[in-house]
Computed example of a mutant assay.
Amino acid sequence: MDLMKLADEIIGGRRLSENDDLSFFVTCGIDELCEGADKIRGEFCGDRVDLCSIISGRSGLCPENCKYCAQSVHSKTDCAVHPFLREDEIVEAARRNQEEGVDRFAIVTAGRALSGEEFERAVACYERMKRELKIGLCASMGFLTREQFRRLKNAGVTSIHNNIETSRRFFPNICTTHTFDMKIATIRTAQEEGLAVCSGGIIGLGETFADRIDMALTLSGLGIRSIPINALMAIPGTPLEGQKPLCEDEIIRTLAMFRFVNPEANIRLAAGRRLISGNGRRAFESGCSASITGNMLTTTGSTIQADIAMLESMGRKVGRGSGSSCAPSCCPCSGRK
């Protein structure tokens, strides 16, 4: 397989599909794969790097049994447990992230779905952030209803996060309290309500590389324009606590493959960055165009300013003052249905 020729074909309009034999991604030379992925990134996303950050709005006691998650009641971990945070705490966190140059800020809540009085408090937070701040607003709150998506959009939310986690085939191996189809239905409902969707998954759960290709193709079919890829960092007390971490080349190969399959999306570096040399630098040389960042994130092992310094040393443009806050094709907003 001539990967540079394939990259040029993708830039010219070709799109990979389930009808293609994509097994070459497993065995091809990694240097050429990364070179081709970065060429595609440059064409569709340019040098602009999209940075997003999160706050844990509600933590712990989740009834779902996702095997990787420290917040599940089915796991025995020492994760923090707290109800929905105070409005001032959330708004000030968003303000600090905006001042440091982050593009988008998300409230993330544990549980099947945020509802009742806590959902009302979330809406009030978003309404205030929309009034007082310029940072983009995202929500990650589980299986919300169509009416809830509508209310969040009216409150200022432009993007919804809901990972599909892995392939359809492998999904029952990591969760049985909800289904893959429930994930897909929630994503489509959010899109129908005019919201961009950020959706990706976790690698290193025990899935095959073919499962990762299938996940990439599913996201392509959904028109997702922001795809966070997490490398599992096994947490003691979870069912996957004994899972060995992926090697760096395996992570990089996966990220580059996602760029080939989803050329117009922001391939977003997420958890597991410490498994990649140079604070994730190699990932940004292999097709990545976005990252989760934040001073409160233990999953990335980095700070906002360290991320910005590293990216600027590569000639990448970061921060809301670096020009357009959205790359032409890679902005999550361009993935709205």
Rank of each mutant, 00 (worst) to 15 (best):
Q98I: 01
R146K: 12
A122N: 11
E132F: 08
K134F: 13
R146I: 07
L114E: 10
K130M: 09
G111N: 06
S115E: 10
G111F: 02
N97I: 00
S140M: 04
G116H: 03
S115A: 09
G111H: 03
V102A: 12
Y126V: 08
C125D: 13
K134C: 00
E100L: 14
A122F: 02
D103M: 06
V108R: 03
G101C: 08
T109W: 00
Y126D: 09
A106W: 00
F143A: 09
C125W: 02
E99H: 02
E132P: 02
E117R: 13
R104C: 13
R95L: 06
A93Q: 07
L133C: 00
E147S: 12
I107H: 06
D103A: 11
E147G: 10
G111Q: 04
Y126N: 11
L114M: 12
S115Y: 05
V123W: 03
A122Q: 14
E132D: 14
R128E: 13
R150I: 13
Q98W: 01
F119E: 02
G101V: 01
C125R: 07
I135D: 07
L144D: 09
R95W: 01
K130N: 13
A113Y: 11
G116D: 04
V123I: 15
L137T: 05
F143G: 06
A93I: 00
R112G: 08
E118H: 04
A93W: 01
R131I: 01
F149W: 13
A93V: 02
K130E: 14
K130I: 05
S140P: 08
